[in-house]
């Protein structure tokens, strides 16, 4: 058993967060939710094709036309539907930011944007296919909920939770198969099984020397970083900050007050994502030393996703080093 206390449970096979989308839509439709899902010629990759197979009247593809898709989503929502729109994160919001801005955010439409293939972990397709700026775009829109699930279990919960309100959401999913962090096993400590809550951090370790705040694919290596720090006698608090907006400011402030040093880890440009949101909170309420692990303002490139994470420093070792730097600055 590691310091985190949950690896003793038999591990489920790795799964990509994007794999949660199709089955979640089918569950919603089966449960009678008035949902409609749209795709833009990528339904096999987003998983929208699963809804197309099970509920063909509830799914439309618009072809490779993301701007059209977003405005159609707004029109559908104006008739009372809960609309899901899916594409890759480079195309949505990348190809249709103004449609999202005017027709989804300004009109406060009940549209859930579910973007697959976020970040550099897309891998071999290279820079044009790797969204490192989508969270900056989406968090800048008033009223937009922005969520980055850390594994397929949390992704499923977030996608289905989005159907419970009539607000616009952006949910960023990823391509690679990742370890399941949220083990749904009754023998596991309850704190590791909490359901996704919009705007609430999940506290994974409650230690006091430093706080590690992560989202998405960086949560699992951040938990490993806490284990490595524990071996060095450093107690690291770990927060899973799946919701970037609205940010759980209370939990961030409490962590800053109790641990005095913060590290943020994300698969996004260090400008405009989780780290920026946390830094804004710290600067206003409780300035403490803070370090970031993320993409240092450069574009991606081709490579296997694991090689890219190494190249861009998105590793447990980087989080450990950042934690030590932050603690040294206390």
């Amino acid at each position: 058993m590691t310091a985190s206390g949950w690896s003793a449970v038999p591990e489920p096979p790795p799964a990509a967060t994007r794999e949660a989308y199709g089955p979640a839509l089918v569950k919603l439709a089966d449960a009678g939710y008035d949902i409609v899902a749209l795709d833009a010629d990528l339904s096999a990759s987003t998983g929208g094709n699963k809804l197309a197979a099970s509920h063909p009247d509830r799914w439309f593809t618009v072809g490779a036309a993301e701007q059209n898709m977003i405005s159609i989503a707004a029109g559908l929502a104006s008739t009372g539907k809960t609309v899901y729109a899916a594409s890759f994160a480079v195309f949505m919001p990348g190809h249709c930011f103004d449609q999202i801005r005017v027709q989804i955010a300004q009109q406060r439409m009940n549209v859930k944007l579910v973007a697959s293939h976020g970040g550099i972990s897309v891998g071999e397709d290279g820079a044009s296919a790797q969204a490192i700026e989508d969270l900056a775009l989406m968090t800048s829109l008033p009223g937009m909920n922005v969520v980055v699930p850390s594994d397929a279990v949390e992704a499923d919960q977030a996608i289905r939770r989005a159907a419970e309100d009539d607000e616009p959401w952006y949910i960023r999913l990823g391509r690679p198969k990742l370890p399941i962090v949220h083990l749904l096993d009754p023998s596991v400590e309850p704190k590791h099984q909490r359901s996704f809550e919009l705007g609430r951090a999940e506290v994974i370790h409650l230690e006091d020397d430093v706080t590690l705040i992560a989202c998405g694919l960086m949560l699992e290596p951040t938990i490993r970083a806490a284990d490595l720090l524990a071996q060095a006698g450093i107690g690291a608090r770990v927060l899973n900050m799946a919701t970037i907006k609205p940010l759980d400011e209370a939990e961030v402030i409490q962590a800053a007050e109790e641990t005095g040093a913060i590290v943020c880890a994300e698969e996004h440009n260090v400008i405009g994502g989780l780290g920026s949101a946390v830094a804004r909170t710290l600067a206003r309420h409780c300035p403490v030393p803070m370090e970031q692990v993320g993409i240092e303002d450069r574009f991606g490139q081709s490579g296997t996703w694991t090689a890219l994470l190494e190249e861009y420093g998105l590793t447990a070792e980087s989080v450990v080093a950042a934690a030590k730097r932050a603690i040294a600055r206390k």
Partner: peptide, 25 residues
């Protein structure tokens, strides 16, 4: 007023969404 606008080119797409919704209903 049925739709926010000012950024040109979005109204016909919005109408497609409304029409699909009316069909479903």
């Amino acid at each position: 007023v049925e739709m926010s606008g000012g950024a040109l080119g979005m109204g016909l797409s919005f109408a497609v969404g409304v029409a699909l919704g009316h069909q479903l209903d």
